[in-house]
């Protein structure tokens, strides 16, 4: 069965061709800024401002060297990687457990818990940032990656919980009963029966959190104000702009270092990105 509405009739070749060509032109303009920065990262400063062409005369790899070592992007890359990986693990484990219980059991206080959670969905980040900054200072974890990682994992993951809860609630009861008969307890049932079943949700939630952690800006820029050592890539490029504002090609290289990993991840795991995004309106 097809879910698609084919209003372009297959017979109508001319209409089809026009639409395709229009979209090809549109797509080129759409993606031009990203192609432009990619090409600028391989050009000399002079060449960047020289023309609209995208193919560099020769590949200037020194731009990347300057960005990676000179502007410390290498360090920021690993900071970002650590924050992203650890926060993904934290988020998947905690929201998975939460979603499992919410999706399959009823217990006193469940409704209140869900109510509190839902009410936090639309809290703007700008609203909580100052107390978060203060809290990390008071706990003495604002000067290392621990604080930043925890805060990155602790943003409202309501959508993750709903994704997990929805999935767990559809798992047949028989599976659980069979596990109980075999003498498996609550925790073992969760780990050995339930978790393996939810691989698609784990993938979707992981992707959404990678996207969030890697690209977040407000939180890291505030937390790292006095600590350049724990900057993330986004903050690093922003600081780069302030410190070496004439090194255009170096900045383009730093930008590419920041955005390329996620774009590659996206191209390979597109399905999960789409599911994660669409989960927000389907629910």
């Amino acid at each position: 069965m097809s879910k698609y509405l084919n209003f372009i009739a297959e017979k109508n070749q001319v209409k089809y061709l026009i639409i395709t060509i229009a979209f090809i032109i549109f797509s080129f303009f759409w993606i031009y800024p990203l192609l432009w920065v990619l090409s600028a990262s391989f050009k000399t400063d002079f060449e960047i401002w020289g023309g609209l062409g995208l193919i560099p005369d020769r590949l200037v790899w020194e731009n990347f060297e300057r960005a990676w070592f000179g502007a410390n992007m290498g360090r920021y890359f690993f900071n970002t990687l650590i924050i992203t990986v650890v926060s993904v693990i934290i988020v998947v484990v905690t929201t998975g457990m939460f979603g499992y219980v919410i999706g399959r059991y009823s217990f006193p206080g469940k409704k209140i818990l869900i109510g509190i959670l839902i009410s936090t969905i639309f809290i703007p980040q700008g609203y909580t940032i100052i107390p978060v900054f203060d809290l990390l200072n008071n706990l003495n974890i604002s000067k290392n990656l621990i604080g930043l990682t925890l805060a990155t994992a602790g943003h409202t993951p309501v959508i993750y919980i709903l994704l997990f809860a929805g999935y767990f609630s559809r798992v047949p009861v028989e599976l659980e009963e069979a596990a109980k008969m075999d003498g498996a307890g609550f925790v073992r049932t969760f780990i050995s029966i339930m978790l393996p079943l939810t691989k698609p949700v784990v993938a979707t939630v992981s992707i959404l959190q990678v996207l969030h952690a890697w690209n977040d800006f407000l939180l890291p820029v505030v937390i790292t104000l006095g600590n350049p050592d724990i900057r993330t890539l986004s903050v690093g490029v922003y600081a780069f702009k302030g410190e070496y504002f004439v090194d255009w090609s170096g900045m383009a290289a730093a930008s590419v270092i920041t955005i390329l990993p996620i774009i590659i991840l996206f191209l390979f795991m597109q399905k999960y990105f789409v599911e994660g995004v669409q989960g927000a309106v389907k629910g």
């Binding site: 690209n215 986004s234 955005i259 996620i262 774009i263 996206f266």
Partner: peptide, 10 residues
Amino acid sequence: FMPVVTAIAI
């Protein structure tokens, strides 16, 4: 969709 996955600060 490509700009969506690109870091906003960049």
